[in-house]
């Protein structure tokens, strides 16, 4: 039960080495060991998407991944999105379009949509809604999130 391993991981560009229990999830590792509490837990069974982070660029549910599985990998969390105190274009559009209310789902939604926009620079509303369907937001009714994502894509295209 207290089987431990040494974990070496890069999070938001910073390298960390820690001795951790093998049963520690990546989400708990980020929140408890690194104090990066921006990653939230909404279900701990892989459905709500609140815990989404990016591992080697890929959006993953950090509640379903053990921290040791991320050994040697590079992880990005919501804390890494803003640069030098400036919000990222997507964060800015969320602010502009009221894309969040309680903010609890927001980090996971942002990480999911960052990946989506990199792969889909030219999405339709239906594409966005489809890609967003792995994230539950109980506050916004999604519309303002969809608008924020579409506006970010348009902005990136120079429109």
């Amino acid at each position: 039960m207290t089987d431990t391993r040494t974990l070496s991981i890069t999070v938001n560009g910073t390298q960390y080495t820690r001795e951790i229990e093998t049963r520690r999830t990546l989400a708990d590792f980020l929140r408890l060991d690194l104090k990066l509490t921006g990653t939230h837990l909404g279900c701990e069974h892989g459905v709500c998407g609140a815990c989404t982070v990016r591992v080697e660029g890929q959006a993953v549910r950090s509640c379903l991944m053990l921290a040791v599985q991320a050994n040697g990998k590079s992880v990005a969390t919501v804390e890494g999105l803003a640069r030098d105190g400036n919000l990222s274009p997507l964060q800015n559009q969320f602010w502009e379009h009221h894309g969040l209310q309680c903010g609890f789902c927001t980090p996971g939604v942002l990480m999911t949509m960052e990946e989506f926009l990199e792969e889909n620079p030219n999405p339709t509303e239906a594409d966005v809604r489809d890609a967003l369907s792995g994230n539950i937001c109980r506050c916004t009714g999604y519309q303002s999130i969809v608008d924020a994502v579409l506006a970010t894509a348009a902005q990136a295209r120079g429109e």
Binding site: R31, K35, L36, T37, G38, T39, H40, L41, T77, V78, E79, L81, A82, L87, Q91, F94, W95, E96, H98, L100, G103, F104, T106, P107, L110
Partner: peptide, 21 residues
């Protein structure tokens, strides 16, 4: 008016009860 709450929430600096240690 854009919300005062948002910059903290958007950057992972919200402080929910589970974030308190």
């Amino acid at each position: 008016i854009k919300r005062k709450e948002d910059p903290a929430f958007l950057t992972g600096k919200g402080r929910y009860v589970d974030d308190i240690e």
